[in-house]
């Protein structure tokens, strides 16, 4: 069991190496990258915006409802919304959701290519199929931090709207809270995490699709397994990175 995991992890790193081995012609690669940006990043804008806005709102309302002590200042609602959205909700929570959305898309599309021999066809022609399939996803997901940036903004905006229009706090107080004790390194921390999650999102689902065996049924199973491993890795890396960057 343990040996199987270790060989899998070894294989994953060998795959990473192979992705960068022999590059596909730029004129072809360019189009692949644009297509992945469209599928992965642009295609996720809607759901990310929707979730961030409403979860930001809920965070603000929950904080407001729990601040029953009149001695605690109201602007903490803004502060708490900002902290939780920027530090955890946008980078981590959205990434776990993306492990489901982008991840299953990546695993099933590459897995289908595997079972219908399209990957063999690429290899037989002399194409480095890993580079051809995975490299454009990695490059496209370098734009993932923009997606998370939007999630941060909309999350705080949602908090502001829910707070102000729900009558919990005045606009000025909320904004005051969002600007309080601002630590610039927190933004850096959030985006470092995001970039690492982006690489996990591009490569782990690709790994599960690329090395799958079997037929259509197994493509479905591979997508599920891929979601589990991608989200587990995101959560683990989140813990490690938080300890490394903010701890001590």
């Amino acid at each position: 069991m343990l040996i199987r995991y270790i060989t899998q992890i070894g294989r994953y790193f060998l795959m990473l190496k192979e992705i960068f081995n022999k590059q596909t012609k730029w004129s072809v690669m360019k189009n692949l990258i644009f297509k992945e940006i469209d599928d992965l990043v642009i295609g996720s804008l809607g759901i990310v915006a929707f979730i961030s806005f409403f979860v930001g709102g809920v965070v603000a309302i929950q904080t407001a409802l729990n601040l029953t002590n009149p001695l605690i200042p109201k602007y903490l609602i803004g502060f708490a919304t900002r902290q939780s959205v920027i530090l955890e909700f946008a980078p981590t929570f959205i990434s776990v959701i993306m492990a489901g959305k982008m991840g299953s898309f990546i695993t099933s599309s590459i897995g289908t290519m595997r079972v219908t021999e399209q990957i063999d066809a690429l290899e037989v022609m002399g194409v480095n199929s890993l580079n051809y399939l995975v490299f454009p996803k990695i490059i496209a997901l370098l734009l993932y931090p923009f997606l998370i940036g939007i999630a941060m903004f909309l999350g705080v905006l949602g908090g502001w709207m829910a707070g102000v229009y729900g009558g919990f706090i005045s606009s000025a107080e909320f904004i005051n809270g969002t600007q309080m004790d601002f630590i610039p390194f927190h933004i850096a921390y959030a985006f470092i995490k995001t970039l690492i999650f982006a690489m996990l999102l591009a490569t782990i689902p690709s790994f599960h699709g690329y090395y799958m065996k079997g037929g259509a049924l197994e493509v479905g199973k591979a997508s599920t397994v891929s979601f589990v491993w991608t989200s587990v890795s995101i959560i683990l890396f989140n813990y490690i990175l938080t300890q490394l960057l903010l701890g001590s």
């Binding site: 022999k22 066809a121 037989v124 022609m125």
Partner: peptide, 23 residues
């Protein structure tokens, strides 16, 4: 070596049993 293999493969055409067209 891997590069020579790829080079050789560009000289190969293959028709798969299930066609394997890029969908």
């Amino acid at each position: 070596n891997p590069d020579e293999k790829r080079e050789l493969r560009t000289e190969i055409g293959m028709v798969f049993q299930g066609s394997a067209l890029f969908d």
